[in-house]
Computed example of a mutant assay.
Amino acid sequence: MLDFGFDKLALIGAVALIVIGPEKLPRVARTVGTLLGKAQRYVADVKAEVNRSIELEELQKMKTQFTAAVHDVEQSVRQEVDAATQALNPAWHDAAAGSGDAYAPPPVYHHPGKNWRLKRGATPLWFKQKAGVRRHTQSGAARVARFRPPRKP
């Protein structure tokens, strides 16, 4: 940027005093100061925006590096688990075959799906009564009549 010393600023002020005149000089100086302040704020905003964009790019790079590292760790853990499973399966089957069904692997769990009747039917009645689960369907009018306050005679 330009380097203005005290002598250069004094020379510019003297020329402005002669050219503009003493009556208009304070108003012009105020306007120039206001414009310089706006320019400085604009430059500061642009710098801040550039810094934010640079930080955002750095964060995105860090995110991709972190995601890649997580993926690598996941793959290595998965490979180790598969290798351990393959190493244990023959020993498991040999132990199960040698000593009967005492060491047989547990059965594979199959999710019952969305059969809500099966889920509700598996709950004991005493638990449903304690939890306040309705066992019989009631119409809206019957529900209103059930909870309506008693009439005064």
Rank of each mutant, 00 (worst) to 15 (best):
T137F: 13
P22I: 02
A87G: 03
M1R: 04
R27S: 11
A48Y: 01
V46E: 12
P22F: 02
A95W: 07
T85L: 12
Q75C: 06
N51E: 14
A91K: 14
A29Y: 02
K63W: 07
A44R: 10
P153K: 14
I18A: 10
P124C: 05
R135N: 11
P22N: 01
G132T: 02
G5R: 00
H111L: 01
H93A: 15
V81N: 11
V19N: 00
D72G: 03
L125G: 04
P106I: 07
K63D: 10
F66D: 08
L9M: 05
P112E: 05
I20P: 00
I18N: 07
D82K: 14
E58P: 00
G21D: 02
S99I: 08
R27I: 09
D101T: 14
E49T: 01
A69I: 02
L17Y: 08
G100P: 03
A102Q: 12
T123V: 15
R117W: 11
A68G: 09
M62D: 15
R117N: 14
K61A: 13
F4M: 06
G140I: 10
R41Q: 13
V50C: 00
L118I: 06
T67C: 05
F4P: 02
Q65P: 04
L59V: 04
L125Y: 03
F4R: 04
D3K: 08
R27Q: 09
A44C: 01
F147M: 09
T34S: 15
V15E: 12
G98T: 13
E23Q: 13
A44W: 02
V32F: 04
T137H: 11
R143F: 13
K130G: 03
V43D: 09
P90V: 05
T67V: 13
A141G: 06
F127M: 11
